[in-house]
Design a protein around this nucleic acid. Structure first.
Length: 558
RNA sequence: GCGCCUGUAGCUCAGGGGAUAGAGCAUCGGACUUCUAAUCCGAGUGCCGCAGGUUCGAAUCCUGCCAGGCGCGCCA
């Protein structure tokens, strides 16, 4: 348990026993004691932790909150980690810690290293996080990029709080679009010799298809000898494989590596669609109407029932998706999270229904909706035409603004927020970019450490250092911030809110820069110097940790 | 018509029952002979979309309305 969590637990117990005493002494009427929560006040004049219990009790007890608070404060007796207790405002009870917790926090960071802040909250849960899953018919766009950054960061966060996390990319390699793609590629191939060869009206117009056709010519010598239908099928399969490889590389360049690239074709090969229908039928959720087969998803709260097999005998995409999610569950995952775009929110009801129809609890599947990205340049929208095949790709983005900056910009907003991504701002303003601001804090510490080493100064263990000398407000603020990480990380995980980590990192860096400007280290007398070295060394560890969580590098010099 | 998301400082956004609503950018004024000035310090701004309601207490929860985005297929 983290230092702060332990402290909260202690104080809650303390308050509870105080209340019990007061009730026993008839100073307070007989009431049931509600849950006691402690929170860190925004204003440090209000102490290190505060309780609103007196305000909550005012009504049931029938007394003024301040009077209740005064009684509690009088009874809350000495606790080794509490220096003083104050009643303030409308009736808050504010606790001020003794200096001992400074040591506790530093010691925790020192001993746990980059594991500091991690937890085992999610142990026992095998979680599969699916994200991006863009169709393999074009390059990654910025919406995919946002999903990649957010998904990858969330995966890291969930892993840090103890989930057994696997990430997965679903490759839709069996749909109609892949046929269209195959035809597009073949047409481009023909056009290499005959520029007047017609291009399919619904084809993919991007220049990358032309490049791919050229590659096909260069790398597949026997292609011309194939039958037309074989060529078409080859274009589809080979083309999709090429696209997947391309997507994989783009994502690797973005520091996103998936544990599994799952092919839809695998489901078809294994007759998974037929099997899933059989399972649903057996469980009584299938019926026939108007020549089609329906899944009774309304049984589980969906707006309407869904067609599973069309009257022409073909499956709908829902069928494959249900089969896919069943497959995930069969692989032993106990928790499934999908990150989808806002155009898919209507999909939530039917998929959650499917999971329940298959006999799993409703919350086994969780679907997160990630809002779109509006790309701006100089404050104006970047015109993108999918039809003309012109859009900014993930690759462009990494080239233009850099991997770290791009990742940070995507992660710094909540999933719900419609993100305005200004390329000019992200790239041109790179010297005052939040991400560099954070990295710079790390680099500065590394620089101090390097010089310390040159001077033959080593970082001692906290226990061997006069940590009591760390009394400066800037020092205390830094330590407090570090103390918050475990709870912040847990909240980020529980709320699926990676942007909290982005903000935390910025806050910590800001406190460090302020400290750095006002407090010197190497020039100071030995006791101060050694204590501060321990402090900044811990800050470095925590910065490394949060940057790592966001998949952003922690440079030693800039 | 129904569903989901959003509306907070000039701009982009945090905060999602608690004390005086915050940050970055932009604007203005200061700070480098001293561990990296990609930094720091100071200054100003808010009917928290509108109207009701719940509560000791609402930017936060509920209802209605307004505005923007996205959905509502035997398309994927």
């Amino acid at each position: 348990m983290s230092v702060l969590a332990a402290q909260k637990q202690d104080l809650a117990a303390l308050i509870r026993s105080a209340l019990e005493q007061l009730i026993a002494r008839n100073e307070l009427p007989q009431v049931s004691i509600p849950e006691i929560t402690l929170e860190m006040p925004k204003d440090k004049a209000h102490g290190d932790l505060a309780s609103n219990i007196a305000l909550v009790l005012a009504k049931p007890v029938g007394m003024k909150p301040r009077d209740i608070a005064d009684k509690i404060a009088a009874v809350v007796c000495a606790h080794p980690s509490v220096e003083k207790v104050e009643v303030a405002g409308p009736g808050f009870i504010n606790f001020f810690f003794t200096k001992e917790w400074v040591y506790q926090v530093l010691e925790a960071v020192e001993s746990q290293g980059v594991n500091y802040g991690s937890a085992d909250y999610g142990k026992n849960e095998r979680l599969l996080l699916e994200f991006v899953s863009a169709n393999p018919v074009g390059p990654m766009n910025v919406v995919n990029a946002r999903a990649a950054a957010v998904g990858d960061t969330l995966a890291r966060i969930l892993a840090a709080v103890g989930y057994d996390v696997a990430t997965e990319y679903y490759v839709n390699d069996a749909g109609v679009q892949t046929e269209v793609f195959g035809r597009s590629l073949l047409a481009r191939y023909r056009q290499l010799d005959d520029p007047s060869y017609p291009f399919p009206e619904d084809g993919y117009p991007g220049a990358y298809v032309v490049d791919l056709a050229q590659k096909l010519r260069n790398e597949v010598p026997g292609f011309d000898q194939m039958e037309e239908t074989a060529q078409l099928e080859f274009c589809r399969q080979w083309g999709i494989d090429q696209m997947v490889e391309w997507q994989k590389n783009d994502l690797l360049g973005f520091n996103v590596r998936f544990d599994c690239w799952f092919r839809e074709q695998e489901l078809h090969r294994a007759n998974a669609l037929e099997r899933i229908i059989a399972v649903l039928r057996e469980r009584g959720y299938i019926y026939e109407l108007d020549g089609a087969l329906w899944f009774r998803s309304t049984e589980f709260g969906d707006d309407k029932d869904r067609v599973i097999v069309k009257s022409d005998g073909n499956y709908t995409y829902v069928t494959a998706d249900i089969a896919y999610h069943y497959n995930k569950l069969q692989r032993g995952f106990t928790k499934l999270i999908d990150i989808l775009g806002p155009d898919h929110h209507g999909y939530i009801g039917r998929m959650k229904a499917a999971v329940q129809a298959l006999g799993y609890p409703e919350d086994t599947l969780e679907i997160l909706i990630l809002q779109y990205v509006a790309l701006l340049r100089d404050g104006k929208p970047v015109k993108m035409s999918k039809r003309a095949g012109e859009f900014v790709t993930l690759e462009d983005l990494v080239t233009e603004v850099g991997r770290d900056a791009a990742r940070y910009f995507f992660v710094m907003r909540s999933l719900d927020s419609h993100l305005d991504f200004d390329l000019t701002l992200a790239a041109q303003q790179s010297s005052e970019n939040p991400v560099y601001y954070i990295q710079y804090a790390h680099a500065r510490i590394c620089s101090i450490m390097a010089q310390a080493e040159q001077q033959g100064v080593v970082v001692k263990p906290v226990a061997d250092v006069a940590w009591q000398a760390l009394t400066n407000e800037l020092e205390i603020d830094l330590i407090k911030k570090m103390a918050e990480l475990p709870e912040e990380l847990l909240t980020a995980a529980k709320e699926r809110a990676p942007h909290r980590i982005a903000r935390y990192a910025l806050d910590l860096a800001s406190l460090f820069h302020s400290f750095y400007t006002h407090c010197h280290i190497l020039g100071e007398e030995e006791t101060i110097r050694d204590a501060r070295l321990v402090l900044v060394n811990c800050v470095r560890t925590v910065l490394q940790k949060v940057l790592e969580l966001m998949g952003i590098s922690a440079p030693e010099r800039m």
